[in-house]
Design a protein around this nucleic acid. Sequence first.
DNA 1: CCATGAAATGAGAGTAGCTCTCAAAAGATG
DNA 2: CATCTTTTGAGAGCTACTCTCATTTCATGG
Lengths: 212, 212
Amino acid sequence: MNSMTAARSTSPADRPQLGLRERKKIKTREAIRDATYALIKEQGYDATTIDQIAERAEVSPSTVFRYFPTKEDIVLTDEYDPILMEELRARPADEPWPQTVRHVMREAVRTGIEEDPEVARIRTRLLVDVPAVRSRMMESMSVTGRMFATAISERTGLDPDSLEVRVYTMSLIGGLMETSMFWAEHGHRGDFPDLLDRALDILQNGLPVQNR
Amino acid sequence: MNSMTAARSTSPADRPQLGLRERKKIKTREAIRDATYALIKEQGYDATTIDQIAERAEVSPSTVFRYFPTKEDIVLTDEYDPILMEELRARPADEPWPQTVRHVMREAVRTGIEEDPEVARIRTRLLVDVPAVRSRMMESMSVTGRMFATAISERTGLDPDSLEVRVYTMSLIGGLMETSMFWAEHGHRGDFPDLLDRALDILQNGLPVQNR
DNA sequence: CCATGAAATGAGAGTAGCTCTCAAAAGATG
DNA sequence: CATCTTTTGAGAGCTACTCTCATTTCATGG
């Protein structure tokens, strides 16, 4: 889901029959990411330059850009979308859609946080503190949004490119984003999945006021 | 509303008692903006550099940055938020909230397009074509979102900083954004306000499916 | 009308993200 | 082991953006 809920790198163990080349690539990716997180923790995001990251990861700056198109991507990129999609398809076809969304998002977020709570927290903090990261996140989120649109289309037969479906998925994405920020702004207190539930309630039922 | 619906510059006539200094500042602002739009129309956004803009506007590059913090802002900035806020407050206090939103947004968008249809179209196109502009727009939109949150709070007594209100306003903003992009992607065909109505329907009632 | 203070401007140097090119190094393959 | 392919590093180059400082331009009170 391209989000604060990263699928962390597959552990070294479960890469058996990969060639040396592939294994090195994975290691480089991890080295860059780890270096970045470490430096950010020490000096903050803006003060951390690509050159520093390259140096600590023991690669050249060119290589950093070869692995990640932008600095923000180092912090944001994950490979969650396919997993999310899979889980989406695994739900019974006759399950009411809102319930599916709830389940899938909740599950994704929960898994992500469990994988590496530290990273989840740093990410959401960056989301709040660094506008560039926030923006980039939005972009990558909209990719996830397209995926949701596809899933909705498969379920309901609605046109995934229609204004209706697009607005709907956008609101989901936006809600998830806002919830992440809310969580971070409040010192990561409370259970994220619970917050998500509240957010989805709003999206489903509107604000809790008399004259809605 | 910090959006594709700019309040265009006040016409030279209605700036009576301003000092020469202030009048010059306004003129410079306009010169920069006009130069930018012209250049973008000729060569596209990315190909247009700050130096070119400065040259055509007959100011120094430093001055460009003195007036606009980023290149994207030259294209996006407007002074619509206060107007929107005013219109928001002008609505009867007992009007159902969704109706207020509908009216206010519709009105704002309509006015914006009428002011300068050309600019409205260029902006929405940039929104689709240039990720950086899209991101920046989202940022400025969230400011508008805070404004809505304040208005909602005044109306309903809900905490503007609560997760609920934030998620709700975010979905409004996102919907508006998505609608703008939809409009541009479809060659600006159809009536924008009508599209907005459809978008708001979705946000209010969810997707038009059986099992929602 | 001019002198003094304040604000706006221009010139220029500097930083950092990002792109591109090309030659060297390292893994894959028969 | 030789050859082919992929990955890497070095470095030049572009552009958005920041900062500083001297110069110009407007405002104001005498």
